[in-house]
Design a protein around this nucleic acid. Structure first.
Lengths: 188, 188
DNA sequence: AAATGCGCTTGACAAAAATCAAGAATTTTC
DNA sequence: GAAAATTCTTGATTTTTGTCAAGCGCATTT
């Protein structure tokens, strides 16, 4: 599985440490439409996506908003819940059958004590996530719907094969109709 | 100064540790329009804003985009540079005369080794920042320019006294004219 | 006090995007 | 493989937002 490689990339760990970490991740499968976690509930797991796609979403008064789509190589959890034990802010649902590797919060917390460099690598991982969010916000501020689509399409061709366009539209901050029209225009 | 309180909020530290950390922050003043750091350069400092306002911005081909405005109580740095030693992604400029408390990267890195709980608190701090970015993105996806204005105005009345509206407009992802019209409408 | 610069507002117009509604295409279910 | 359900597309229209341009208000300078 690729979790090992992924962790190695984040984390120049000793083999021993790496194996100790890996041993706490349990393989798990979800079927299409199954929820990984739901708004308001606790999320006491942290998972690596080995295969399949998930969407991160919640409801506003008027509609459902998909905030992110995650595929192979991404980690999923609800940070508010996993780190701060607050209620989930997001629901996370499988959009396809999926295989993930999951670690329990209780095991995860032990890493901090048992593995000296864990917290440092975790901080670096969080910092990267933060920087990606900065970039994403910058794109919302500074680019049009069409530019956002083009960029996302270039970097996520696989998603378009597997995930309904309406969810992609939401992630890009536009209506499904607008996405459809942009695609028609770009493909002409 | 309030840095102590701020750190205490983030970090349930021993008095000793807290004092050791505080001792590495040096008071510094900047005049209006002075740069804290600039795109492409390194940023090897991390600072707490004691007073004054800063904007975080960069240039696109066509225009300058202000991504964030930070006032008292915020920390500023360029993470890409400060954590990963990459070139700055942002310029940070004082919008008013300002007083900050600054720690050098070299001192900051020692905290990791000298203060056992530092990395954990740092991780939690980063996680909070990440969650705030998630919320901000959610607002871009799910609300109109007017709603974004209303929310920002309610929570940042002070900023409107001190910072040119054009920069606030950019942070909110709208043109200065649109912000002006929304304000005219809301005040009527 | 006139001149300058800067930021803000306003109007007119254009462009982008949302909404509503209908129908086509695709996928799922039985 | 037919029916049902879901997803996608397209057209017509409205709303929202951006752009361009002019002018105002205000502070600063000279």
């Amino acid at each position: 599985m690729d979790l090992k490689l992924q962790l190695l990339g984040l984390f120049s760990a000793e083999q021993d440490d790496l194996n100790r970490i890996l041993s706490k991740f349990q393989k798990q499968t979800l079927v299409k439409n199954q929820f990984y976690t739901q708004v308001g509930k606790p999320c006491q797991t942290f998972s690596y996506i080995e295969s399949g796609y998930f969407r991160v979403f919640c409801h506003t008064e008027s509609r459902e908003v998909t905030q992110w789509i995650a595929g192979k190589g991404y980690f999923i959890t609800d940070l508010a819940s996993f780190i701060f034990n607050q209620p989930n802010r997001w629901s996370i649902q499988a959009l396809t059958d999926a295989t993930i590797y999951t670690v329990q919060q209780s095991d995860y917390q032990l890493f901090e004590q048992e593995i000296p460099s864990w917290s440092i690598m975790e901080k670096r991982f969080m910092a990267k996530c933060f920087m990606q969010m900065e970039s994403r916000i910058f794109k919302f501020i500074s680019t049009s719907a069409e530019e956002r689509y083009q960029e996302y399409f270039e970097n996520n061709k696989d998603v378009f094969q597997q995930v309904p366009l309406q969810y992609i539209a939401s992630v890009l901050g536009m209506s499904a109709e607008t996405l459809s029209r942009i695609r028609a225009k770009v493909n002409s």
